[in-house]
Design a protein around this nucleic acid. Structure first.
Lengths: 190, 190
DNA sequence: CTTATTTCTAACCATTCGTTTAGAAATAAG
DNA sequence: CTTATTTCTAAACGAATGGTTAGAAATAAG
């Protein structure tokens, strides 16, 4: 018995995700969110509570975008080769027509870690950490699948987690040629 | 024929450097600079012109802090081993009593690249790029010293530049144990 | 001591930030 | 049509941002 919303939460979060991805968390203002999402502040706050609320939804939207690539890795029938392909698949998602935006989760982790207001952003960082941990376990499984023992698989997974984060950062600064050099040598050593 | 300043530029820049290093560029406000540098805004602006001016001086201060480690690499009598030692030396500078701050230049590059106001920060990014380029050439020289040919030395230098940036980022998020795994495997492949 | 010049303090500037709110517009239920 | 409820517009909130400025305090030169 009231007026109806004239927008879908999923639609506007999709646009917010793209914006956060391109600009980062702090550098995305509520006014910019207003114009990009196409709804005004009242609607944003009544639907998502706060800027952080919008961002948390955007993080989930980003995980959905990524999930086909993750599932492809999970269901693959080889180890190292599948992980290397996963690196290339992720790199492809980082880059759009205009420029490379890196990985939203890696970007956010480097942006927010080290900020003093740790309590405020704890929920965001937990969400990201859980994905990183999931990814690491996937790497371990695949390396064990390739015949590695648990100890060396874990050590190599630590290496790969950091290498993958490096690709996100490097994609925004270095040429594709340099990044391909990086991926090549990364997988020549494990 | 006038009053004398009661502070040394070098002294206050030293404090500003520490602050920028810990907090990042955007997250360091002029008020915070005031209290940390121990002089007020008027003095800051009359000595350094702008917030960006303070930061540029801080970048040079940071390069000075780093220079013994760089010189040690430059004058070393071996190749790969010296680069690996350089990685450990740099990692040591990233960490103080409280926490790991990463590399000020890497931090700044990831913070400012991707921001739309590219023109404003161009001077800062140029300063950083020049150091990265210098570092890359040093890596190439050391690899050639170790008997590598120019082409493969360049490819491996691309790899090392990205790996070193990764260490800066990882030092703020990952455990020392994970980072040691990363450095170990990084140098096992080149 | 007087004067010219510089550094200091402290208040102030416009702008932007994330967030809130009063009231108009819309709509389903009675 | 009336009424209760929700969504909308648009203005405003206090706090914080980078940057400026008027005038007092200090000091070297004459």
């Amino acid at each position: 018995m009231a007026r109806k919303k004239n927008y879908e939460d999923n639609d506007v979060i999709e646009k917010a995700t793209e914006l956060f991805w391109r600009n980062g968390y702090e550098n995305t203002s509520m006014s910019l969110l207003e114009s990009t999402m196409g709804i005004n502040k009242f609607s944003i706050y009544s639907s998502f509570g706060s800027k952080q609320g919008v961002f948390l939804q955007s993080l989930r939207c980003y995980r959905n975008k990524l999930s086909p690539v993750v599932i492809k890795l999970k269901h693959s029938n080889n180890g190292r080769a599948a992980i290397k392909q996963y690196f290339y698949d992720c790199l492809a998602t980082y880059t759009d027509a205009i420029c490379s935006k890196g990985c939203l989760m890696s970007n956010t982790r480097t942006e927010l870690s080290g900020h003093v207001n740790g309590e405020t952003n704890a929920e965001i960082l937990n969400e990201i950490d859980s994905f990183v941990q999931y990814q690491k376990q996937l790497f371990i499984d695949k390396l064990i699948f390739d015949g590695e023992d648990t100890i060396s698989a874990t050590k190599k997974a630590n290496y790969l987690i950091i290498a993958k984060q490096a690709i996100s950062g490097a994609s925004k600064v270095h040429s594709l040629h340099e990044i391909n050099d990086f991926i090549d040598i990364t997988f020549s050593s494990i």
